[in-house]
Amino acid sequence: MAQKTYAGVTVDVNDEGYFNDPSQWTKEIAAEIAKEEGLSLTDKHYEMLEYLRNKFNSGEQLTIRGINKSGIVDVKTFYQMFPGAPLKKSTKIAGIPKPTSCV
């Protein structure tokens, strides 16, 4: 098991950098992971991270369609907020496992 230190806190992550224990996550940690990914987080980003964490905590699958229905941002904005691989990147910053859905 790998470990990383964000905002002075040591957390357990897997080979790809996803959190093993989502409860270790804080907003300060998120900002540092985001920096690693070349992003600086806005309020909208945090709102989206909260949404993702809530979905994960309630055991729901994360899908791109769900993001569109979240009421936070539309999909186009979501792609702009987390450029590259948006769902993978956002879940990493949100401190939850990599999504397993194909849609």
Binding site: R65, G66, V75, K76, Y79, V103
Partner: peptide
């Protein structure tokens, strides 16, 4: 049930993603 959208909506998501 698996959150796979209807064709028209799927196309919108695809286009929104570039």
């Amino acid at each position: 049930k698996l959150d796979v959208p209807p064709v028209s909506e799927f196309i919108e998501l695809f286009v929104a993603g570039g």
